[in-house]
Design a protein around this nucleic acid. Structure first.
Length: 281
DNA sequence: ATCGAACCTCCAAT
DNA sequence: AATTGGAGGTTCG
């Protein structure tokens, strides 16, 4: 199956820009393999579009992958709305076609709780560990792989099990969050339908979820393109390009407010480009 | 309200 | 070879 794109799509940049952590290059890096909705998917970018194949063809759905890749986001509109910002424009020229992904909220939530005080290789290894420990061992035409576990499976493994995997102090957060979802104390699936501020408030009720992680989940899995995660890299960007050197001590939430006013409804896209640009230089 | 320290673990840099 | 510091943050005092 070949996906044609109306706008430029920087596939590798998008998959490895630190928003998703279960993609790996295979076959000399020409092909990217990941697991979506319990199905192993292989993607590669060619002249005529993005080639997709699945380990299990009958459970494979073109619409699903288009949604995941947000292939229909109107990049010209987004770029034009952000074009007055010269730093964004520089980043855009470097990474034209970089997209935000639309991931599964549950997986995204767990992943970004794991991201706290961690680097990317470690986040990847933790997500892999969680999948191998609690996920379903599944077989397809390419061989065996593990799905990302449902809340109940993580809940059963518990804090101690998660510590064994190496989650450290994050183990109790992930275990508690899994419990809360299993007990239906919080209906994560419904957050997508809430307004940004309301969904943010709800996400902050989870232990291990602060403003940064919540904004990542909102941006990368709940269609809230105005979400603006403030992490160390974005702080560097803001400090170096927009603020006075002296304003070291502005709280993260204030920085977020400021950025959301400046960049508007597509602040999250601005965030991703600025983040990517700063991280790779 | 606001601010610093502590937190698990793994590595890379002394 | 052992020790320290830091990594896409959050919580607790």
């Amino acid at each position: 199956m070949i996906l044609t794109t109306k706008y430029p799509y920087a596939l590798a940049e998008t998959l490895y820009s630190g928003q998703a952590f279960r993609w790996d290059p295979i076959l000399n890096g020409e092909v990217h393999e990941g697991i979506l909705d319990g199905v192993r998917v292989r993607l590669s970018q060619k002249e005529d579009g993005i080639h997709c194949s699945a380990g299990c063809e009958d459970s494979f759905n073109e619409e699903f992958i288009k949604k995941y890749l947000r292939i229909e986001d109107d990049l010209s509109l987004i770029y034009s709305k952000l074009s007055s910002d010269s730093y964004f424009t520089i980043a855009k020229d470097f990474y034209e076609g970089l997209h935000i992904l639309k991931q599964d909220p549950w997986e995204c939530l767990v992943t970004f709780i794991c991201s706290a005080n961690n680097n990317i290789p470690r986040i990847k290894s933790l997500v892999k560990g969680i999948s191998e420990c609690c996920g379903e061992n599944t077989k397809d035409q390419f061989g065996h792989f593990y799905t990302f576990p449902e809340p109940i499976a993580i809940s059963e493994v518990g804090e101690l099990g998660l510590r064994q995997i190496g989650l450290g102090f994050r183990a109790k957060y992930v275990a508690k969050v899994a419990d809360m979802v299993v007990r239906n104390e919080i209906d994560l699936k419904s957050f997508r339908f809430l307004e940004y501020q309301e969904a943010l408030t709800e996400l902050l009720k989870f232990p291990g979820v602060g403003d940064k992680v919540a904004n990542c989940v909102l941006l990368f899995s709940m269609d809230k393109l105005q979400a603006f995660p403030v992490d160390v890299w974005i702080k560097r960007v803001l400090r170096e390009n927009y603020l006075n050197e002296s304003d070291e001590s502005i709280p993260d939430t204030k920085l977020r407010d400021w950025a959301q006013i400046r960049f508007g409804e597509y602040a999250g896209y601005a965030n991703q480009y600025l983040f990517h640009q700063r991280r790779l230089t």
